[in-house]
């Protein structure tokens, strides 16, 4: 009985993870690889629109699971996430809900937001207290182990 409880508990733990696991599908015909390298062996040939569950990422590769219980590696850009929406759990940083669920993402404001007008325009004058000096930024990078690399912008621009 005790063992059964442990199994249930472990399953619950895993199901919590799988609830947050991201579903995706392939956008091209692709080989499921044994390791995160284009030269690695193929486990299975997956047709376009094959559904997978993303388990982890390593560089530009995702380790995925596909039906039935087949695991292997696919390039990130061979996949597109399925639309899942996001839950409102864990918004502990916020002082209130706000009620806006737009997902414009990385640019643009919603019309609702432009209409809200609940902020303080003079807050702009208080921003200096958060600014970090170049020296502090360098120390911050060093503490994280980040190293500068010399890299030009690509020609693709």
């Amino acid at each position: 009985m005790k063992n059964l409880l442990i199994i249930v508990a472990v399953n619950l733990l895993f199901s919590t993870f799988s609830a947050s696991a991201q579903q995706a599908s392939t956008i091209i015909d692709a080989h499921l690889k044994t390791s995160p390298s284009i030269r690695s062996e193929s486990i299975e040939f997956l047709k376009t629109d094959t559904s997978v569950i993303i388990l982890e990422r390593q560089g530009g590769w995702y380790r995925v699971e596909t039906f039935p219980q087949l695991q292997g590696w696919l390039k990130m850009l061979w996949l597109r996430y399925s639309v899942t929406g996001t839950s409102d759990n864990g918004f502990s940083l916020l002082t209130e809900g706000g009620g806006v669920t737009v997902a414009t993402g990385i640019r643009g404001l919603s019309e609702e937001e432009l209409e809200k007008g609940q902020g303080d325009p003079y807050a702009v004058n208080t921003l200096e207290r958060f600014t970090v000096s170049p020296e502090q930024a360098k120390a911050f990078a060093k503490a994280g182990g980040l190293k500068k690399k010399h890299l030009p912008y690509a020609d693709t621009e």
């Binding site: 990130m76 996430y81 639309v83 997902a103 919603s110 890299l151």
Partner: peptide, 26 residues
């Protein structure tokens, strides 16, 4: 250049792609 994993940016855009388009503004 700053030493950050460039594929993390791909992960962000994939996240945006998975957001539910549920508002008029969107």
């Amino acid at each position: 250049r700053a030493g950050y994993d460039p594929y993390s940016y791909i992960a962000v855009i994939q996240k945006i792609a998975s957001e539910k388009p549920d508002s008029a503004g969107w």
